Amino acid sequence: MDSAPSSGAISAPRSSLSVTFAVWNALFLREAVARLSATRGAWVLIVLEPVLHACFMLLLYTVLRTRTMAGADVAVWLVLGLTGYFTVQNVFQRSMGAVDANKALFAYRQVRPIDTVIVRAALETLMGFIILLALLLVLAFFGRSIIPESPIESIFSFIGLILCALGVGLILSVLSDLVPEAANLVNFLFRPLYLLSGAIFPLSAIPIKYREWAFLNPFAHGLELLRSSFFPTYHASPEANFKYLYAFAACSIFLGLALQVRFSQRLRAQ
């Protein structure tokens, strides 16, 4: 008669992929709790930032008696631009500080610096998408059309924006940890992105001889493509294209991953 298996039998080792997903899940829950409860009413401030910006700009355009922007409904146009931009900004700025904020967790060999960056980017993306969807539903309640003319194009535009932000975040997370002063310099240099990405005005209004410089910014491509996917009559800048958007995303992610691998031990040790 076969004996029953011992209660103390060693379970089969988990695969590397299952360990990685378990780490991401734990980090995601930790980051979500920290992000939403950092201060009293922190979640309210997260929602209010894009909402107040959108309301202020809508009020401004209402005073100017502007109902359309480059052939698009100005309310939906602003919500797409502002929420899209703030989501991108939060992804790369929060990713930049991910390694430094989670130093204590690197005592566990399963947790790598790159995990903290990816999880923060995923959390900011999820929150940004929820806020964007909520604002669009509010506009729909007031009779605005929020259905994109090209849903597939809108999805790929949003994904392209996030991938570009992730690539930038991976690079900056290494640079800011190795050279702490770099974080201040990056924040200073990135301030003009709010305007250069076309969040509050159409880039087609820029003279042609200067517009090509604005479109060196990949986020300008993403926001312009996102807006054009919603409005068939939108006068989008012809410079905006998916090829540049995804080429920048691929190159920046590759460089970011290379830096993460190259300096992994230094990021853990500092």
Rank of each mutant, 00 (worst) to 15 (best):
I206A: 10
I118D: 01
K103N: 01
A240R: 05
E212C: 09
R67K: 10
L17N: 01
T116C: 05
E153L: 15
L139M: 08
F56C: 12
T125N: 08
R109V: 11
Y85M: 11
R120Y: 12
F190E: 12
P13H: 00
F156E: 07
T68H: 06
Q265D: 13
A240H: 08
S157G: 14
L137R: 02
N187L: 13
L27N: 01
T20A: 13
G8F: 01
A183S: 11
W213N: 07
R30L: 13
F254H: 01
I152R: 07
F141N: 03
P13D: 01
L185G: 04
L29R: 15
Y85T: 06
L17K: 06
S264H: 04
S11W: 04
Y108V: 03
V119I: 08
S176L: 05
S7W: 07
P113N: 00
M69V: 14
Y194F: 15
C55F: 14
L225P: 03
N187T: 11
A12M: 05
T66N: 10
A165P: 05
I10Y: 04
P238G: 11
P113T: 01
M96E: 10
L225M: 13
S228H: 10
A247N: 05
R109Q: 09
T87N: 13
A70L: 03
T87E: 13
A250E: 03
L48R: 04
G256V: 09
A183R: 15
V76H: 06
E212M: 04
S154M: 11
L175A: 15
I208Q: 13
E181H: 11
D100Q: 14
F92T: 02
P207V: 09
W24S: 03
I171E: 09
D100K: 12
E239V: 14
E181W: 08
L139E: 02
V117I: 08
G198D: 11
F21L: 15
N217P: 02
A134E: 02
F190H: 07
F56V: 15
F230G: 10
F86A: 01
S229T: 04
A22D: 10
L82I: 15
M69D: 02
V74H: 06
I46M: 09
T233P: 01
R14P: 00
N102C: 03
A9F: 06
P238W: 10
L163S: 06
L135F: 12
L17I: 12
G143D: 08
A165D: 06
N184R: 14
R14G: 07
E224Y: 07
R67F: 06
S150G: 02
A220Y: 06
V79H: 02
P5E: 07
R268E: 04
S16C: 03
F188I: 14
F263A: 13
A22T: 11
I146V: 15
L52I: 12
L216P: 01
D177W: 05
L64Y: 08
Q93V: 12
V63D: 00
V174S: 05
I208W: 09
Y61A: 04
L133N: 02
I130K: 00
L78N: 00
L132E: 00
L59R: 06
P192C: 14
C251Q: 07
D73R: 06
L78V: 08
S252W: 11
P207W: 10
L29A: 12
T20S: 12
V186G: 03
Q93C: 04
F129Y: 00
G97H: 05
Y108S: 06
L27F: 09
A258K: 12
S6H: 09
N90D: 11
I171D: 04
L136G: 00
F156W: 14
